[in-house]
Design a protein around this nucleic acid. Structure first.
Lengths: 156, 156
DNA sequence: GGCGAATATCTTGCTCAACGAGATAATAAG
DNA sequence: CTTATTATCTCGTTGAGCAAGATATTCGCC
């Protein structure tokens, strides 16, 4: 297991890592441009993912997804609400619960920033045939699973 | 540009993002298992990358890479040195500079944790032909470049 | 060779995200 | 109606990172 084998496959693995890093930095820029912290962006993404899946997100569930304790989750929601990115709504069914709703403004902000990147990615994918897309899908899914082994943070 | 189009290409973009997130969480677990913070792991990775490329890394250069100011960089190096992951060595040519060296222990720690994931990734890649690998490489590289482009402006 | 400017790192004092512990409010069980 | 459970919030503390400035080394100039 030498660290420096000039192997084409290893180069691709490094490229995947570099891409992951660059995506993280892209999110950081979004955070900084809007006076937010990385955690705030992660929270908004988690909330939008849940919304896309048609699920309600409570404060506790969001905190668990992000790996925050209750105090941190409260502070996070305070920041996001103060900035107008989310609304706290007491659940009608169980009034202990606080359902977190993303505002339209935050959704628009996210699309304006991440939209171009997503569109560019889709455009890139159009250039490949079914065989190639299957390879991309399988490779990414395989790496994702391998990385997820040994500790699970429940997705939304 | 609706957020919820059930489009195969969009699914692949989401998969890439999910993979990037999972790789980030994998690094976080490494950090937590070794009593480190995310920044410390980023620093070690940057140092090992530089070493792989045969470059010396000074304190200032490392801080610039990570986006830390000098105070933060000093504190980071204090943590890493206290934990035995790096050594500070005054450069012989310019004794103002501090060259940061990763210890063998830290390298071993990193390989023990990230090695299996890298090997699994290489193994996955062996299953694809040149055509498919080219697609993976081009797609990842294209997304990386798109994400690296700074000029995305959010609406006011 | 000595002096001031430039460079690289470290020190000090502060801010704020996140933690632990526990309070408060609402629901569920007996 | 009383007690246990669940969901969120409050209070006090820790520590990563920042801004500003101190310290140490090198370079340019004469």
């Amino acid at each position: 297991m030498q660290p420096d084998r000039a192997q084409p496959d290893l180069e691709l693995v490094h490229l995947l890592r570099a891409t992951a890093v660059e995506l993280g930095l892209h999110s950081s820029r979004f955070a900084q441009q809007n006076g937010m912290h990385p955690t705030d962006v992660r929270a908004l993404i988690a909330l939008m993912d849940a919304r896309r899946a048609g699920e309600e997100t409570t404060a506790g569930r969001l905190g668990a997804t992000l790996g925050l304790n209750s105090a941190g989750t409260t502070a996070l929601l305070d920041r996001l609400e103060r900035a107008g990115h989310v609304r706290r709504v007491r659940a009608a069914s169980d009034r202990r619960k606080v359902v977190v709703e993303v505002t339209d403004g935050a959704v628009g902000l996210g699309w304006a920033f991440f939209g171009p990147l997503i569109e560019r990615s889709v455009e890139l994918l159009r250039g490949y045939d079914a065989h190639q897309r299957a390879a991309i899908r399988e490779f990414l899914d395989g790496v994702r699973e391998a990385a997820a082994e040994g500790g699970h943070t429940a997705p939304g």
